[in-house]
Design a protein around this nucleic acid. Structure first.
Length: 138
DNA sequence: ATTCTGACTTGCT
DNA sequence: AAGCAAGCCAGAA
């Protein structure tokens, strides 16, 4: 993934407040570019510096392979959870997930501007690279 | 150009 | 609840 996209994704993720969360697909949608898998890829390779646990699967499951670590953060941040997470904390058994209906980030007044700024900057930087120039007609 | 690979999604059994 | 197939977007080989 190009660095412009990586930066845009990370910048977006930093806007998500503690206790809230968004799905991979949500991030792509807010950026107006790429898809859920691209966002997942970015998080996997470059997400360690941000609150990666606030970006998860559309059904509320934590990022693949990091369930246990993520749960610690959710509990600490008071993120709404569903299922037997307490069992999971004690025994490592039991299914649970984030209650995305309740936890999904609802951007506030100032956030929309920031989101737009990020999306626009990405758009600009992306377009600059292609420069079509009628390539197909040659 | 083709194929493979992912911290993904959605729909159907 | 749990699997599965197909669709998805893009980088890498």
């Amino acid at each position: 993934m190009r660095t412009e996209y990586v930066e845009a994704v990370l910048a977006l993720v930093e806007l998500v407040p503690p206790g809230a969360a968004v799905a991979y697909g949500d991030v792509a949608e807010l950026l107006g570019s790429g898809g859920a898998r691209q966002v997942g890829s970015v998080m996997s390779h470059h997400g360690s510096g941000v609150a990666w646990w606030r970006v998860l699967r559309a059904n509320g499951e934590a990022p693949q392979g990091l369930e246990a670590e993520a749960l610690q953060f959710y509990v600490r941040e008071g993120t709404p959870l569903l299922g037997r997470y307490q069992d999971f904390l004690r025994t490592g058994e039991g299914h649970w997930r984030v209650d995305l209906m309740a936890a999904r980030w609802a951007p506030e007044d100032g956030d929309f501007d920031l989101i737009d700024a990020i999306a626009e900057r990405l758009e600009r930087r992306l377009h600059k690279m292609s420069a079509p120039d009628d390539e197909m007609t040659v």
